[in-house]
Amino acid sequence: MSGLASSDSGQIVFVIDDDPAILEALDSLLRSVGLDVSCFGSVAAFLDAPRPDIPSCLVLDVRLPGKSGMDFQKELAGSQAPLPVIIMTGHGDIAMSVQAMKAGAIDFLPKPFREQDLLDAIAAALDKDRSRRAHMAELDALRARLATLSDGERDVVAQVVLGRLNKQIAGDLGVSEITVKVRRARAMRKMQAGSLPELVKMIDRLAAESSARGH
């Protein structure tokens, strides 16, 4: 249970099941391995509750009153902050498990399941959410640094990452080569890039992210 033994409370497991007996049991089991747990009887109750902005995952029963687990899973997968989902079911068939996995479920657990399968799935789900959050945080930081560049610096960076020489850039922008060198050094410092390849990589990541959002 590596990765689960943390009791730093920096992560939380959400559970949605309409059977109180299952909720109580899961609550106790997950707390016994040091996880923070928050239980809900329906999707609506889950959506109404405030959610802390920390690594988290959702253990979701398929058969629920109101919105079904499968529908909610699809909805989450298409949202801005996709929460990793583990599906539980009392009457699972192969078709349903394929559907759940295709929609991006971490695991599909037919009741009654082995506790280790659930704990492994939760560990994987929390890891996934943690790395997604780290990735997003990194991008946010890069975007913030990029915002600190002046227009002149940004123009120089845009040319530099295309592999053009200082002299060519100076000619294009109508400034002296010294000015280009100064702006380039200042941009590198602001972006916290140790080398030209590093700066290129940063700009590529930001470009990839914005084009991914564009879709």
């Binding site: 059977d19 007996a21 299952i22 109580e24 049991a25 899961l26 106790s28 089991l29 016994s32 391995v33 009392g90 009457h91 009741k111 009654p112 399941f113 506790e115």
Partner: peptide
């Protein structure tokens, strides 16, 4: 019947595991 029995059985298994871990 299987579904009705499955729910308490699942809870029993989970509670049993929780007991052992506590």
């Amino acid at each position: 019947i299987a579904h009705e029995l499955n729910q308490p059985l699942t809870a029993i298994v989970l509670n049993g595991n929780a007991t052992l871990r506590w």
